[in-house]
Simulated assay, not measured.
Amino acid sequence: MDIVQQQMLDSYRAAQHGEPPPPLPGRHDREVLRDLRRHLLGRPAAAPRRPGG
Rank of each mutant, 00 (worst) to 15 (best):
M1G: 10
M1K: 10
D2Q: 06
D2P: 03
D2C: 08
D2T: 07
V4A: 13
V4W: 06
V4Q: 13
V4K: 11
Q5F: 04
Q5V: 04
Q6P: 06
Q7Y: 15
M8L: 15
M8G: 06
M8H: 14
L9F: 13
L9T: 13
D10Q: 15
S11F: 13
S11M: 15
S11Q: 15
R13M: 14
R13K: 15
R13V: 13
A14L: 12
A14G: 11
A14C: 12
A14F: 10
A15F: 14
A15H: 13
A15C: 12
A15N: 14
A15K: 15
Q16E: 14
Q16R: 14
H17S: 11
G18L: 06
E19S: 08
E19F: 12
E19W: 14
E19Q: 14
P20C: 06
P20T: 11
P21D: 07
P21C: 09
P22I: 09
P22L: 09
P22S: 12
P23A: 06
P23W: 07
P23I: 04
P23V: 02
L24H: 06
P25T: 04
G26W: 01
G26A: 00
R27M: 14
R27L: 13
R27A: 15
D29P: 01
R30K: 11
E31L: 09
E31A: 14
E31R: 10
E31T: 11
V32G: 02
V32C: 02
L33N: 03
R34Y: 07
R34F: 09
R34Q: 08
D35F: 04
D35H: 07
D35S: 08
D35Y: 04
L36I: 03
L36N: 05
L36Q: 08
L36W: 03
R37P: 02
R38A: 01
R38L: 06
L40M: 04
G42C: 01
G42Y: 02
R43C: 01
R43G: 00
R43K: 07
R43Y: 02
P44M: 07
P44N: 08
A45Y: 05
A45M: 10
A45I: 05
A45K: 07
A46Y: 01
A46D: 00
A47M: 01
A47E: 02
A47Q: 04
P48M: 05
R49T: 00
R49C: 00
R49A: 05
R49S: 00
R49Y: 01
R50N: 00
P51A: 07
P51W: 03
P51D: 05
G52S: 01
G53P: 01
